[in-house]
Design a protein around this nucleic acid. Structure first.
Length: 508
DNA sequence: TTCCGACAGTGGGGTCGCAAT
DNA sequence: ATTGCGACCCCACTATCGGAA
């Protein structure tokens, strides 16, 4: 199949907002793709590369060569080219990669270049990713979408599932099983503002569990072999030997467990997330970093124990299997209750212990792999500050032409100036975006460029955030974590904004 | 007819490893 | 030795579509 065929389908998908129409366009294309190119087509049209990453990003795509007029490239040719680009390594690889990118783009039309550029940057923006593609595969292969979804759960990679569906229908999909050593998309949690709300969402008896501020892991064991995967299914076994050792020491030979790794201080309180993250990301000289920053692992779910697949079992059954297979010190602490007061007391204790919050879990829900199902609801404390808008950046995509991303500053009472603590674009409605664009342009002051518009520091905005982290990027040495706009404070002037001292007391 | 679940989009800070400077 | 880049860890929130109620 020619790349241009796929690009035209992508354009049609982008052009129509109706999901059912998007699905029709995608299914039509899948109906005529060669079996040998099905994985590539599904991958591209759901916004990812079969190679996953090839070492080419925004900066490497800045000045594309003159486009061709005739579209001749096939999916297979492009895919082979990306394989070659990915294979570059060592000294001179950046130049070699650049040469290959230029060669590849030089063989494409303008339309193809634009598509591939967005795909490589991970910004396809056609209003269709995995969720829509699942439906399109179901339609093209004439199988129920639930079968596609189930297979994806177990295989973790939609192109393979789609190719199987197109080639072998329901039978081929049912051949996908939970395999020890092959990661499953982890179940995700929804959010709630309070424990009471979370319990209400679950309804009735629920498990209230510590939410640790670490890195999500999935551990697989088959005999003597243990593998550990991240949330995005990357293999990090070598980076977290503590997990391999802990799982390898369990009596059970056949396990798939879901949990969290975290660096704890000697007193048992958690290190800041930055410490855990840095430790887990370290790939060179793991033995040394391990000595300095040991990791602890806590499991909260079991997907397989001793030959029994538990994905479809209710939470209660899975947890019972976990408790059977894993000693209590490796199980995430939790309380089973339907009483709001005891759940809230548990939550307060968790926060006092320095941890991130709780996850309230249904005892009945199956493991909804890869979905933000209603079976798990997380609750975290929220801080707020009144900060001053120092500048704003022009938005992209649907925010084109709107000032979107706000630069936020706290008052420095010593100088009367402002110290920048980070940016946010979250929490803004279309109405607020329109209002702030007009308001900020009226306050514009200083040298603005194509992206950033500095403004007179007069507008006060109430910001919610999860915590204050150490920062090397910002002058105050502090940055807000997960900052989002709650509302503007027209009743406050910049002189009434919160101060850097106040922020500093939160960084503990 | 209204409601709500799922999805896509819009970006945030921090860290590591690697190649280039 | 430092800088820039890509990739990936954590992620919140709003708008929208279309099926459920």
């Amino acid at each position: 199949m020619l790349l241009i065929d796929l690009v035209r389908t992508s354009a049609a998908v982008t052009a129509d907002p109706a999901r059912l129409v998007k699905i029709r366009h995608l299914a039509e294309l899948l109906g005529r793709v060669d079996p040998g190119e099905a994985e590539i087509a599904i991958s591209y049209l759901s916004g990812e590369l079969p190679q996953r990453n090839v070492g080419v990003g925004w900066a490497s795509l800045q000045d594309p060569p003159e486009p061709r007029l005739a579209a001749t490239a096939t999916l297979r040719q492009v895919d082979d080219f990306l394989d070659r680009i990915k294979a570059q390594a060592g000294p001179g690889s950046q130049a070699a990669r650049k040469t290959l990118v230029t060669e590849l783009f030089g063989a494409l039309t303008r339309q193809e270049q634009a598509f591939l550029s967005r795909l490589l940057r991970g910004e396809l923006r056609q209003g269709a990713l995995d969720g829509v593609m699942i439906e399109a595969i179901a339609k093209a292969a004439e199988v129920p979408a639930t079968e596609v979804r189930r297979a994806l759960t177990l295989r973790g990679w939609l192109p393979a599932v789609g190719a199987a569906a197109l080639g072998g229908g329901v039978e081929a999909l049912r051949a996908f099983r939970l395999e020890v050593g092959r990661p499953v998309s982890p179940m995700l949690a929804q959010s709630a503002a309070s424990v009471a709300v979370a319990l209400g969402k679950i309804g009735g008896l629920a498990a209230v569990e510590w939410k640790l501020d670490g890195v999500r892991i999935q551990a697989h064991r088959s005999g003597d072999t243990v593998s550990v995967f991240t949330r995005t299914l990357d293999d990090i076994t070598a980076q977290v030997p503590e997990v391999a050792e802990a799982v390898g020491a369990l009596p059970s030979q056949d396990l798939v467990l879901d949990g969290e790794v975290i660096a704890l201080r000697p007193d048992g309180r958690p290190e800041p997330f930055q410490i855990t993250s840095g430790r887990v990301s370290s790939r060179t000289d793991v033995a040394t970093v391990r000595g300095k920053t040991p990791l602890s692992v806590f499991f909260f779910d079991a997907l397989r124990v001793d030959g029994a697949d538990l994905l479809d079992q209710p939470g209660q059954i899975r947890h019972a299997a976990l408790a059977e297979a894993v000693p209590a010190e490796l199980v995430t602490p939790r309380l089973v209750t339907e009483n709001v007061e005891s759940a809230e007391e548990f939550y307060r204790d968790v926060i006092r212990g320095g941890h991130e919050g709780v996850v309230v879990k249904s005892l009945l829900a199956p493991y909804a792999a890869g979905r933000r199902g209603a079976g798990w609801v997380k609750v975290k404390p929220r801080h707020t500050l009144d900060l001053v808008v120092l500048a704003a950046e022009w938005g992209h995509g649907r925010r084109e032409g709107r000032l979107s991303n706000l630069h936020l500053g706290a008052l420095d009472p010593l100088t009367g100036g402002f110290v920048m603590l980070g940016k946010t674009f979250k929490g803004l409605t279309d109405e607020l975006l329109a209002w702030q664009t007009e308001r900020l342009l009226a306050l514009a002051d200083g040298p603005s460029d194509a992206w950033v518009v500095p403004v007179r520091p007069e507008l006060v905005v109430e910001i919610a955030f999860d915590g204050v982290q150490r920062s090397t990027r910002y002058p105050g040495g502090m940055a807000l974590r997960f900052a989002r706009v709650l509302r503007y404070r027209p009743d406050k002037g910049a002189a009434q904004a919160d101060t850097v001292e106040t922020v500093r007391t939160l960084m503990l």
